[in-house]
Design a protein around this nucleic acid. Structure first.
Length: 566
RNA sequence: UGGCCGAUAGUGUAAUGGUAGCACUACAGAUUCUGGUUCUGUUUGUGAGGGUUCAAAUCCUUCUCGGCCAGCCA
């Protein structure tokens, strides 16, 4: 890329790109780049996974390689088909394709078993029968070395026989297990004879009851990578300690292709939680309506909330890739969202908290249609006609009887502009018996049609509005952060203590412009002057519209109000 | 304190021996038929000490702080 000065622009690369560049230069993997995204189907994908997905699929795209989607389904006790479906849906929605490269670790069970046999035959693995408690004791501690299991030096024949019995389901869970024979004194606990296979008499969602032994992650993962000829196996920081084991397993297998593992820092976001265990708890305990609750940081939650895949991908690109543990500010995600939605969202008028306005000098029984831009940021989005009549609704917030300084919306005697329509002046305030304001009587200036006048007089305030007879009633859900604390659970140790009691507020009786009758889930909408919204994909129906607020518009008036102490 | 990893404005991320930059946030102003958008500007940084060098965020060294690891989970 050339800059204006003609100098070559330095394109900064993250540490993984540099490694790949170097590998390509050295011809390490025959010039190939093959990555993989290896979710365990035991929960829904969240924004942290999106970072990994964008990284792995993005790298493959960038280097003309491929990225495999591989389900790491080695623990049937926790995994379900529902999760596989949701994961595929989410990755596709984010905009990535894996074509024919869809794999399952369970497809390798047969060959994995063969490799296990080979390790046993070479004296690199043995069947142990220590109890789980004993295993813990024998493993030693962080500072003290472990002790060899008394079963460590069984004959190869006996190991083979026992392993075969395990496979044939002749033993109970937790009795026998296969472990690698490495080094019980290693300072790296992962190398203290890690387990390779455990007995589980559980139905597997793909292999059914074919197996009563299942391979462990540390055995399965490196071999799956080698089998698929993965070149760069990218995982998160907590697996750094596993890399020596990863390399040991690949070497012991004798498989020809040697993938390498690289670790990067997982995404942390403030004001939310990112572990599947905690997210599962929110779902199971009913703190949210499900994995796709619009307050959840899951991909499906963000989608239902109205996020665009482009915004999420942009975010993933901006947070960078490094080995530094960090916490990204939620404000950056907000920014990416608003920036994308600003160009994408169709502008509509919706009054969330209606206040009736009667224009006394406007004829009754007259409807005039006013033209409005669908998106001022994008002329190709076209225009539409909006009905204007004598009786309208505007936002309660857009009227104040005794306005403070710098308030330039409607108040008695003051003139404002109705967006796209006319200037109106408030003449009279109508109250209910309890004193509350229920209606405004206004007059309009017929010469201000379209929102301007020939005399070019300044009208600072502009309100959105809907025609009372044409407006569609709707429910609107105003979402806020799920947690009030920047680091949920930091104070008390229990993240539930920091749940935001006002994370959702549902308003009914909102009035939206008639064009919204055609809105469908997946549409990106901006309720002018209010925020970005979408049609709720679960609860909305044509005769009972439900909108979710994706994110409010920036509101400098709210800031000002706060500063002035109002 | 066994091992591994990390530390650059408030946050995230560049600079790989040669002018510490970018984005977000915050703040100030301009523009605006959305108090949106857009534009302009401002504040703030190399964890500490020592060393090598003409020159150190970068190399060496000591220290400090933080993260991860003792599942038959991934």
């Amino acid at each position: 890329m050339e800059t204006e000065t003609g100098h070559e622009e330095v394109i900064s690369r993250n540490f993984i790109e540099r490694i790949i560049d170097e590998d390509l230069a050295q011809g390490t993997h025959g010039g190939k780049v093959v990555t993989r995204f290896p979710p365990e189907p035991n929960g829904y994908l969240h924004i942290g996974h999106a970072k990994s997905i964008c990284l792995n699929f993005g790298l493959a795209q960038q280097y003309g390689g491929v990225c495999h989607l591989r389900f790491d389904d080695t623990n049937p006790a926790k995994e379900e088909v529902e999760y596989i479906e949701s994961i595929k849906r989410d990755i596709a929605w984010l905009g990535f394709t894996w074509d024919g490269y869809e794999f399952y670790a369970s497809d390798y069970f047969e060959i994995l078993h063969t490799i296990a046999l080979k390790l046993i035959a070479e004296g690199k693995a043995y069947v142990d029968e220590l109890s789980p408690e004993q295993v813990r004791t024998y493993r030693g501690t962080l500072k003290e070395p472990g002790v060899n299991s008394p079963y460590r030096d069984r004959s190869i024949e006996e190991n083979l026989r026992l392993f075969s019995e395990m496979k044939d389901g002749k033993h109970a869970e937790g009795t026998l297990f296969l472990r690698a024979k490495i080094d019980m004194a290693s300072p790296n606990l992962n190398m203290r004879d890690p387990s390779l296979y455990r007995i589980k008499h559980t139905m597997h969602h793909r292999t059914g009851d074919a197996w009563s032994i299942y391979p462990m992650y540390d055995f399965t993962h490196p071999l799956s990578d080698a089998l698929e000829k993965i070149t760069h196996s990218i995982c998160t920081l907590e697996f750094e300690d596993h890399r020596p084991l990863y390399d040991w397993i690949v070497a012991a297998s004798g498989l020809p292709d040697v993938p390498h593992q690289y670790e990067f820092a997982r995404l942390n976001l403030n004001y939310t939680v990112m572990s599947k265990r905690l997210l599962l708890q929110l779902v199971k305990d009913g703190h949210v309506s499900g994995w796709d609750d619009p307050r959840m940081p899951t991909i499906s939650g963000l989608r239902r909330r109205g996020y665009s895949p482009q915004a999420i991908r942009d975010f993933a690109g901006r947070i960078g890739v490094s080995k530094t543990n960090s916490v990204v500010d939620f404000a950056l995600l907000d920014h990416c969202l608003r920036e994308d939605l600003n160009t994408r969202a169709r502008r509509v008028m919706a009054v969330i908290d209606p206040l009736k306005v009667v224009i006394t000098n406007y004829p009754e029984d007259t409807t005039e249609y006013i033209e409005a831009d669908n998106n001022p940021e994008d002329p190709s989005a076209g225009k539409r006609q909006i009905p204007f009549t004598r009786e309208l609704y505007i936002e309660q917030d857009d009227f104040m009887e005794n306005p403070p300084r710098k308030y330039f919306r409607l108040s008695p005697g003051r003139e404002i502009r109705l967006k796209h329509a006319y200037y109106i002046t408030c003449d009279e305030v109508i109250r209910a018996e309890d004193g509350s304001i229920i209606e405004l009587r206004c007059t309009y200036d017929p010469d201000s049609r379209g929102g301007w006048t020939a005399d070019e007089r300044k009208v600072k305030g502009t309100s959105h509005w809907v025609s009372a007879v044409h407006a569609l009633p709707a429910a609107v859900r105003l979402y806020d952060k799920l947690f009030t604390a920047e680091f949920p659970g930091e104070k008390t140790g229990n993240f539930l203590d920091d749940i935001n009691p006002d994370s959702v507020r549902e308003l009914s009786g909102c009035m939206v412009e008639p064009s919204l009758a055609q809105a469908v889930p997946g549409d990106y909408l901006q309720f002018m002057r209010t925020g970005y919204f979408c049609v709720d994909s679960v609860d909305s129906s044509p005769d009972a519209l439900v909108f979710n607020r994706t994110i409010p518009l920036r509101d400098s008036w709210a800031k000002l109000k706060k500063k002035m102490g109002i």
